[in-house]
């Protein structure tokens, strides 16, 4: 039996909204410790990794590990009916369940229940090495969203370079070019923290960075981690309960 109640149901809704443009079908991997999602986009350019620890839920029971295969667009349709202060209770049988039951409860008088059909999804789980990164940038999530949205009008590739003076986001395109420099700042309102061992410069597809910023409502700050010649990690922490992490393979000079 899998049964778990998330008091702030809107957190789960925000997770599905954040990933549904990148991931069509995915497994909710439920275990005693957590509910997790790991999936590549269809082009295998990026990877989404979601974690919600059991402690994020007010009641959590998972008798044995289970993978619940969902279509994110269909899940999103059901979550449209979630009230903004509703809790969600998830229920599924142990042995290859056909459906996932979700109860939406808000005020005392209304309980809505929905059943989402599940499917078998064959996925390759990728092992992500837990290695330290050369540069880690923490900045406001809405500021990062604004930067990648603004730069997309100039071109499709963004160079992110982290150096002594700060983090530079640069785009070169047909109509011209642009640079946005973000420097370390202690100001409470828009604090920027940059930890750098060695300068790093990598190129990324703005289209994907824009997809990632769909997770902005989940977190006040985003953490961007880079090392030479490896995928960037764009992490949206979910309080102390988990995260949505996006990994994006860099573009390489031919």
């Amino acid at each position: 039996m899998f049964e778990a109640q998330l008091v702030e149901g809107k957190t789960f809704k925000a997770i599905i909204e954040a990933i549904k443009d990148l991931v069509v079908d995915c497994n909710l991997d439920c275990s005693e410790e957590e509910v997790a999602i790991q999936s590549m986009d269809s082009a295998h350019v990026s990877l989404v990794a979601v974690r919600l620890s059991a402690s994020a839920f007010s009641n959590y029971r998972c008798d044995r590990p289970n993978s619940l295969g969902i279509n994110t667009a269909n899940m999103s349709k059901i979550l449209k009916m979630l009230g903004k202060d509703d809790s969600i209770t998830f229920k599924a049988e142990d042995e290859s369940p056909d459906s996932l039951t979700m109860l939406f409860e808000g005020g005392k008088s209304t309980i809505a229940d929905f059943e989402l059909k599940l499917m078998d999804i064959e996925t390759e789980q990728l092992g992500i090495p837990d290695t330290p990164y050369q540069c880690t940038i923490q900045m406001r999530a809405d500021e990062f969203q604004r930067i990648v949205r603004d730069l997309q009008v100039l071109g499709d590739t963004c160079t992110i370079s982290c150096g002594k003076e700060g983090v530079r986001f640069s785009v070169t395109g047909a109509i011209g070019n642009g640079n946005i420099l973000v420097r370390s700042s202690d100001e409470d309102k828009d604090k920027v923290t940059i930890n750098m061992e060695e300068p790093v410069e990598l190129n990324f597809a703005l289209r994907y960075l824009n997809f990632f910023t769909k997770a902005t409502p989940l977190a006040e700050n985003v953490v961007i981690s880079m090392s030479p010649d490896v995928p960037v990690v764009v992490e949206y922490p979910i309080e102390e309960f988990g995260h949505v992490k996006f990994y994006l393979a860099p573009k390489i000079e031919e």
């Binding site: 590549m40 295998h44 350019v45 990026s46 990877l47 390759e124 789980q125 990728l126 092992g127 992500i128 090495p129 590739t157 190129n203 597809a205 490896v230 995928p231 990994y247 994006l248 393979a249 860099p250 573009k251 390489i252 000079e253 031919e254």
Partner: peptide, 14 residues
Amino acid sequence: DMKQGSISGFFAVK
């Protein structure tokens, strides 16, 4: 020109 790398080229299948 730049070529888009693949994420599966960086992380091995478990």
